[in-house]
Nucleic acid binder design. Structure first.
Length: 233
DNA sequence: ACCCAGGTGGCCC
DNA sequence: GGGCCACATGGG
C-alpha cells in the first residue's frame, strides 16, 4: 500500500521531470553520429572523456575513411592510437575498439546488422563480455546503435536524480538505478533516447564549474518547477 | 596549478 | 562486495 503510493509518486516525478526537460530544451536528436558503427566508436571513445575531445578523434578517423568496420579491423593498432589520441586513454581505447572488431569478425563475419539484430538481452550479455565495454557503453550501443530500449545511466543521471530527491541513495548501483527508471516510465526507445540525451545536455551545458550545485541556473529553474513535490515532507 | 570530462578493469582486503 | 588506482588529452 505504502510502497505502491511511493512508486506512483516516483513514476509521476520521473515522467514529469522528463516532460519538463523536454518542454524546456526540446528534441536532442541523439546520438551525434551518421551511422550505427560511428555510434559504437563514439561510445567507446567518450568513456570518461568530454565529447569535444571525442569529436577530434572521430574527425581524424573520418578524414582517413576509417569509420568502417573492415578498414578499422585491418588498421595497425599503433596507427589507430595516433588517430584517436585526442580522445585520451588512447592505449586502452584502441584495444577496446580492436576487441570489439575481433568479436564482430569472429562471430558475425564483420556484419554489424547481424549483431545489432540480436535480442536486446543477448546483445547486452555479449557486449559486456568484450573487454573495455562496460554497462554504460553497452547500453549506449543498444539504445543508440541498435535502437532498442536500454536506459543509459551515467554520472549525470545519478547526480541529477540524487539532487532532485528522485533517489536517496548516493551509492546506488548502475543496475538498480536503471531498474527504477525503467520500471517507472514506458519502455519506449524514443523516450529512453531523448531522456538520456536531455540529462546529458543539462548536465554539461548549464553547470560547467560545479556540476549541478544549487547555484546553477538549472537547479533554480527546476526547484521552481518542482516546489510542490518537495514542500510535502 | 588545479579540477573535470557522456567509464572500465585490475588489484587488494 | 567495497575501496583505491591507472588510464591521457584538452578545456575552464
Amino acid at each position: 500500500m505504502k510502497g505502491k503510493s511511493n512508486s506512483k509518486t516516483k513514476k509521476n516525478l520521473i515522467l514529469q521531470f522528463y516532460h519538463t526537460l523536454y518542454r524546456e530544451f526540446g528534441k536532442q536528436n541523439w546520438w551525434p553520429a551518421d551511422a550505427p558503427f560511428e555510434v559504437i566508436i563514439g561510445a567507446i571513445l567518450t568513456q570518461n572523456t568530454s565529447w569535444n575531445n571525442v569529436k577530434k578523434a572521430i574527425e581524424n578517423l573520418k578524414k582517413n575513411d576509417f569509420i568502417d568496420a573492415k578498414k578499422l579491423f585491418q588498421l595497425d593498432t599503433e596507427k589507430l592510437k595516433e588517430l584517436i589520441r585526442p580522445a585520451g586513454f588512447f592505449n586502452q581505447k584502441a584495444k577496446t575498439i580492436k576487441n570489439f572488431l575481433t568479436f564482430l569478425f569472429s562471430n558475425y563475419d564483420g556484419n554489424l546488422n547481424n549483431l545489432l539484430n540480436e535480442e536486446d538481452d543477448t546483445l547486452r550479455y555479449k557486449l559486456l563480455h568484450i573487454k573495455g565495454i562496460g554497462k554504460e557503453t553497452a547500453d549506449s550501443i543498444i539504445l543508440y546503435a541498435a535502437g532498442k530500449p536500454a536506459f543509459v545511466i551515467d554520472k549525470y543521471t545519478k547526480r541529477i536524480f540524487i539532487r532532485h530527491n528522485i533517489i536517496n541513495n548516493q551509492d546506488i548501483e548502475y543496475d538498480e538505478l536503471q531498474k527504477i527508471i525503467q520500471n517507472n516510465i514506458p519502455k519506449k526507445t524514443e523516450l529512453y533516447n531523448e531522456y538520456h540525451a536531455l540529462l546529458v545536455k543539462v548536465g554539461k551545458e548549464l553547470c560547467k564549474t560545479k556540476p549541478l550545485c544549487w547555484k546553477c541556473p538549472l537547479n533554480i529553474f527546476l526547484m521552481r518547477k518542482y516546489r510542490h513535490f518537495f514542500s510535502k515532507k
